[in-house]
């Protein structure tokens, strides 16, 4: 499976967000997209499954151009875990995860959809919560439900928009372990927008570092997470240490310009 994007250019109104970006992902890897607020990381990821339509550029999955496809077809190929989930009305965990089966059926869920959802719930230990309301769960559990829904989509690519931003360190690691295990087991591609550089460094196979809508650096975490890159992108003086080959970033002070 190959995913690539080419010449992605995006602006919201007159504000340019992404400048002519191209990249090629490889099989079964975890790619973290990092960068300061407003650098365009979330927008880039949303361009991949056309949640945001770029003005220019194309996305290709296995040689097929994604831009022209019906949303339903895109949803079969890309699972998406949003940053926040809206609970206007109560929905049970089961019903929430079942939404992931929507691209495959039209009117209502069939028995096989429920079987698939049950399988995902067992995998993520969500069974005891099946009929609880999603809004009643803790932050970590809620995030797991969102991931379960994306798993139920059975897509080849999983997109995450800051999946761990509202979780404590234990749950951050739990969610990231889950992502890593799934990627390895199912040979899928996971692309994550992450703020926490240390989490990116520990789990990602490759890191895309962005600055002002451009890709500043790409590659192995230890090549990307350097004191120079962090200074250039974040305007922050930092100390990068190494824990068994994994870079650990300690921010020290910001640079006034």
């Amino acid at each position: 499976m190959t995913l690539s994007f080419e010449g992605i250019t995006l602006s919201y109104g007159t504000v340019p967000v992404l400048h002519d970006l191209s990249f090629e992902f490889s099989d079964a890897e975890i790619v973290a997209v990092v960068g300061p607020n407003g650098s365009g990381k979330s927008s880039l990821v949303k361009c991949l499954n056309q949640l945001v339509k770029p003005q220019k550029g194309s996305v290709h999955l296995d040689g097929e151009c994604i831009n022209e496809l019906h949303p339903r077809e895109i949803a079969k190929k890309f699972g998406y875990v949003p940053q926040n989930f809206m609970d206007t009305f109560p929905a049970t965990v089961m019903d929430t995860i079942l939404m992931g089966r929507k691209p495959y059926s039209n009117w209502r869920s069939a028995k096989e959809d429920i079987v698939k959802v049950a399988e995902v719930m067992r995998m993520l230990n969500l069974e005891p919560f099946a009929l609880r309301y999603h809004s009643e769960l803790s932050g970590g559990q809620r995030q797991k439900v969102m991931i379960a829904r994306a798993f139920a989509q059975e897509s080849k690519v999983l997109l995450f928009d800051e999946p761990t931003s509202q979780l404590d360190i234990k749950h951050q690691l739990e969610i990231m372990d889950l992502v890593r295990d799934t990627v390895r087991m199912k040979k899928i591609l996971a692309i994550l927008v992450v703020h926490d550089l240390n989490l990116a460094s520990r789990y990602a196979d490759r890191i895309i570092m962005m600055r002002d809508g451009r890709i500043q650096a790409v590659g192995d975490p230890k090549d990307v997470l350097t004191e120079e890159n962090i200074k250039a992108v974040y305007d922050v003086q930092s100390l990068v240490m190494h824990d068994g080959g994994i870079p650990c970033v300690v921010p020290k002070q910001r640079i006034e310009n």
């Binding site: 339903r72 079969k76 809206m86 009305f89 929905a91």
Partner: peptide, 17 residues
């Protein structure tokens, strides 16, 4: 079913096709 998903937010609904 579409309505259930629409209530979960426009972005979510779009990502579910």
């Amino acid at each position: 079913w579409d309505m259930n998903i629409l209530a979960a937010g426009d972005e979510t609904a779009k990502s579910l096709g």
